[in-house]
Simulated scan of single mutants.
Amino acid sequence: MKPPARRPLLGALAAAAAFSCLLLLAPPPLLFPSSSSSTNHAPTSPYAHRPKLLFLLAGQSNMAGRGAPTSPLPPPYLPHPRLLRLAADRRWVAASPPLHADIDTHKTCGLGPAMPFAHRLLLSSPSSANPAPSSVSGPAGEEDGRLVLGLVPCAVGGTRIWMWARGEPLYEAAVARTRAAVAGGGGELGAVLWFQGESDTIEVDDARAYGGKMERLVADLREDLGLPNLLVIQVGLASGEGNYTDIVRDAQKSINLPNVILVDAMGLPLSDDQLHLSTEAQLRLGEMLAQAYLEFESSRDPRL
C-alpha cells in the first residue's frame, strides 16, 4: 500500500506564492527579508548593458535551489564576470548563489542547476580558450565578442502548475521580467529552463491535468514573448509530494510540441527530505541541461 500523500495547506501555499509574485512584479526593497539583503545591494554589473544570451528559470523549489552550500563552493557555483542575474529590482548583477534569494522569499534558497548550466555554456563558447578573471573588470558595454549570459530567476517553491497559467501572478511576473531582461541591454532568450510538478502529484486530478496545462503554458509563453520557436527544456521529476508522481512524469514525457525537450532527473540523488535534489544532483542536472541545450543548438537549421 502506498503511504498517504503529504497534503500541505494549499490555501496558505497559494497566498505565499501570490505574495512572492507581488515582489516580482513591483518589488519594494524594504519588504525583502534579511536573507536577501546582500543580493538587493549587489552592485550593477559592468556588463549590464551588453547584449546577452538569456535564460528564464521557472518552476518550483528544485529550480530555485535547495542544495546545501558547501565550503568551499564547487567551481561551477563561483561568480564569473560574464554571468549575470536579473535581481528582483530588475538590475543586472553578478550571478552568485543563491540565485533566487530575493525571488523565492518564503524559504531558504540554496544551490540549484542554473549556475552549473551557465558555467558549462561559458566553457563551451569560443572565448573559453582565454577565460576571464574571477572579478569583473573593463568598461561597461565593451564589445569584445565574448559570450555574456543573463539568468532570469522566477521560480517559487511549492507552486502548482495552475499558478503558472496566463493571467496568474507568477506567469505575468515571468513574462514581465523576461521582457525587462531583453530591454536591459538587449540580447535574445535562448530557452526556458522549467523544473516543476512535484506539488501536482498530491491530487490525482492535478496530475491528470498536468500535460494539457503544460502545453498551454508553452503556447502562451511563445505567443506573449513573440517567440514561436522558443526552446523549453523541462526537467522530468525525480520526486513528488504525493502518490501520483508517475502520472505527472508520463505527462511530461508525452508533451507533443516542437522544441520542447525533456531532461530526466529521475535517479539523481535526493536530500534527506526525499523531495529536493542534493547539491551533487544539482551539479549533474546543470550539466545535463547544458548538454541538452548545446545539442539542440548544434542540430538547429541556421536558416530558421
Rank of each mutant, 00 (worst) to 15 (best):
Pro139Lys: 08
Leu84Thr: 02
Gln252Pro: 06
Arg177Phe: 01
Arg82Thr: 06
Pro27Cys: 12
Ile103Ala: 06
Gly167Thr: 02
Gly11Trp: 07
Leu193Tyr: 02
Val148Glu: 13
Ala16Val: 11
Tyr77Trp: 12
Pro8Gln: 06
Gly226Lys: 05
Glu142Ala: 15
Val260Tyr: 00
Ser271Cys: 15
Gly197His: 00
Met115Leu: 15
Asp200Met: 08
Gly65Asp: 03
Leu10Asn: 10
Leu22Thr: 09
Pro33Arg: 07
Gln252Cys: 00
Ala94Tyr: 03
Pro3Arg: 12
Leu283Phe: 01
Gly184Leu: 11
Val152Glu: 10
Asp273Ile: 01
Cys109Ala: 12
Leu147Asn: 01
Pro43Ala: 13
Ala94Ser: 14
Leu221Cys: 14
Leu170Cys: 14
Pro3Glu: 05
Phe55Asp: 05
Ala5Ser: 15
Ala290Asn: 00
Leu84Ser: 01
Gly197Arg: 03
Ala129Arg: 12
Ala191Pro: 11
Pro43Val: 08
Gly197Cys: 04
Ala290Gly: 04
Val152Gly: 08
Arg222Lys: 07
Thr108Leu: 14
Gly187Arg: 10
Asn40Ile: 15
Asp206Met: 12
Ile233Tyr: 03
Arg208Tyr: 03
Gly59Asn: 06
Leu270Cys: 04
Glu287Lys: 12
Tyr77Gln: 01
Glu188Thr: 02
Asp301Met: 09
Asp301Arg: 06
Arg85Leu: 11
Arg249Phe: 07
Trp162Ile: 03
Gly167Ala: 07
Arg177Asp: 07
Val152Phe: 08
Gly226Pro: 08
Ser35Ala: 15
Thr39His: 15
Gly226Glu: 06
Pro126His: 05
Ala281His: 02
Ala26Glu: 11
Gly67Asp: 11
Val260Gly: 07
Gly211Ile: 01
Arg216Asp: 14
Gly212His: 14
Ala15Arg: 13
Gly145Ile: 12
Leu10Phe: 14
Thr39Tyr: 15
Val204Ser: 14
Leu231Lys: 01
Thr178Asp: 10
Glu297Cys: 13
Tyr293Leu: 10
Gly242Val: 08
Thr44Tyr: 04
Gly185Phe: 03
Gly110Cys: 13
Trp194Gly: 04
Leu9Ile: 00
Leu78Asp: 00
Asp102Tyr: 02
Met163Ile: 06
Pro75Thr: 08
Ala219Cys: 14
Asp206Ile: 03
Thr178Phe: 12
Gln234Thr: 03
Ala191Leu: 06
His100Val: 05
Ala12Val: 03
Leu147Met: 12
Ala14Asn: 12
Ala118Glu: 04
Arg160Gln: 14
Leu294Tyr: 05
Ala176Asn: 11
Leu304Pro: 00
Asn62Cys: 09
Phe19Ala: 12
Val232Ala: 05
Gln282Asp: 09
Gly197Val: 00
Leu237His: 05
Ala209Ile: 11
Pro28Gly: 10
Gln196His: 15
Ser45Gly: 09
Pro169Met: 09
Ala12Thr: 00
Gln60Arg: 04
Leu9Cys: 07
Ile247His: 02
Val93Asn: 02
Arg303Met: 14
Leu277Glu: 02
Leu230Ala: 03
Val235Met: 07
Leu24Val: 01
